[in-house]
Design a protein around this nucleic acid. Structure first.
Lengths: 327, 327
DNA sequence: CGCGTTTACGTCGTTCGTAACGATA
DNA sequence: TATCGTTACGAACGACGTAAACGCG
């Protein structure tokens, strides 16, 4: 049993039992993988796959268990390599981010640019993902870092670091009845108009729906999207009242009126979530710092390594944060 | 990075940084280990050990972290091998038991004999250990299975399987004032005599001390030992009143009078504890079954693999158990 | 007949053990 | 001088890639 054999094994599984494809992905030849797999099966004393003819048909039940252990081994091997890369200040690498559209579009660009200035040789990859699946990407190992928002509760699935607090805003066209009220509309008032908001607000457990439900009214969702720009576009087109994150508002949206959201709609917190079972590269922690300067990389590292308790200060609001950054 | 390199690395650490000794233990030559270590350090890009001259003086801080990951990798590799050995019905292996003296001397012999009949080619090793350290042996990886008793609370550090319930017994010489009372003495009565009991009963958190404390009296411990035979010997010598596990009593102890223990002294439960993070060999589970026939190997396996909840029946008392066994 | 796997074979790299050397207490 | 680690070298093994054969749809 060698690390190579285990790496080939999971590559074959991840390639859908296509050895040729797996061979390409691990930069080796197909007969090489075939042979190593055979040797591994020989050493273990049983088949890891069920075969029909010469091709792999399915993973054998016994194979599933072996593969699970093999994945943990490879993860730990990757951890050693990541740790070593940090230790020697390695400046080349890859950072896969799982995040929502609003963060990717309005929050991360500055931070990512800043990271790339400090680490020109890392490549950042944004994994496009639906709001609810961000944490799955992280758990699944597809991403190194997740950035997402909640209405207060701490996301699980890793170490959650609070970045900043933010509010929702109401936007309407200048011609809209709410345009002139000069204050936050109430939930009751909002419930009279069709709303345009994020896809995630359609879910029954969303803080938005709960806020409306608390007032005994039902919001009419005219349209939902993941994309704040789409929401603005449809609000401009008169489809309804927009309800979106303050980060998504430019300094001037001259044809739109921006109002505060009703007080009953709770504040949100943006979080960075780091996988606990994997060693993060330094630049991943530095990206967190680039988004929210009050977070220190070394504190995060200490918590990740279990040498300190997570004890984050109340993060700044988005407005304060951007003011800090521009100073 | 190879599994061999990692194996050598932890062997060197476990040999106290003596490469020559480590080489013997892994059945390889000293230059081989030296070279592999060097290659590993080269690949990682930093020293794993601090050196003075040519000899290893200490593990470098960075080394500690790498070693921790390496141990997990090797553990998982061992898990794969153990799983494979089970899968192909491998009948050769080793079983290291961490247990207390009473279990080793009075409970396990029959079970171990039975296991060795079914698996003649496994070698069972009893790791002699103080009562309180049984679980440490398991956690530390020095043992495959722990057998110990508690006064009710479930031991942690692994999957605890209840084996049987047992009572303490009071023994006195025929000439002792308590010899003729024909009933269980009270705690008050016991507190008037010097006691001879297990080492573990001297600890403040022991159920025995708590029972006495509940009655407002302090036991006088004349002598403690790990060994029930020693306790009996000293009771015979008139050193005091013996208090020991019923398993330790032979069918006839003609020169001793056996009395029930006071009702306030709680019943104990004997447990088998299996490491959760390691794959146990089938014969380890079968040994549990050999001690306590009501435990089925496959149920234990299902719980270990997370496919079932632990839901053990109230285990039989020691007397019932031995009757079952002799039937 | 194409796709994917296995088998065969030659080459190259690596590991391993033996032996000699070096440093340290 | 004994102990322990490193370096040097040769032999053997193993991994890998190329090329060809085999089955299956």
């Amino acid at each position: 049993m060698t690390l190579t054999q285990l790496r080939y094994l999971v590559a074959i599984v991840d390639a859908g039992l296509n050895i040729t494809l797996a061979a390409e992905r691990v930069h080796a030849t197909q007969p090489g993988l075939s042979k190593q797999l055979k040797q591994l099966e020989e050493e273990l004393g049983f088949q890891l796959f069920m075969r029909r003819g010469r091709s792999l048909e399915a993973v054998a039940p016994a194979g599933e268990r072996v593969i699970a252990h093999a994945r943990r081994i490879l993860e730990e091997a990757a951890n050693i390599r990541a740790y070593a890369a940090n230790e020697r200040g390695e400046h080349v690498g890859r950072l896969v981010l799982a995040t929502t559209h609003t963060q990717a579009r309005h929050v991360l660009p500055g931070a990512i640019a800043s990271i790339r200035r400090a680490w020109p040789r890392i490549s950042v990859h944004l994994e496009p993902v639906a709001d609810g699946e961000v944490l799955e990407q992280l758990a699944h190992g597809a991403a190194d870092l997740a950035v997402l928002s909640t209405a207060g509760q701490v996301p699980d699935g890793g170490l959650a670091v609070p970045l900043f607090r933010w509010q929702r805003k109401v936007i309407v066209p200048r011609t809209h009845p709410l345009a002139g009220i000069g204050r936050a509309p109430t939930l009751i008032e909002l419930s009279r108009y069709p709303l345009v908001s994020y896809e995630s607000s359609i879910r029954p457990e969303s803080s938005l729906r709960r806020a409306f439900a608390g007032e005994g009214v039902e919001p009419q969702m005219a349209m939902t999207a993941r994309d704040a720009d789409l929401i603005k576009t449809y609000v401009r087109a008169g489809m309804g009242v927009g309800l979106l994150a303050e980060m998504a508002l430019g300094t001037q949206e001259e044809d739109l009126v921006v109002l505060p959201a009703p007080a009953a709609i709770p504040e949100c917190i943006a979080w960075a979530v780091l996988p606990r079972s994997r060693v993060s590269r330094d630049y991943a922690l530095e990206l967190i710092h680039a988004i929210a300067p009050q977070v220190d990389r070394h504190d995060v590292r200490r918590v990740l390594e279990g040498n300190a308790e997570a004890d984050w200060p109340l993060p700044p609001g988005w407005i304060e944060l951007t003011q800090t950054l521009t100073l």
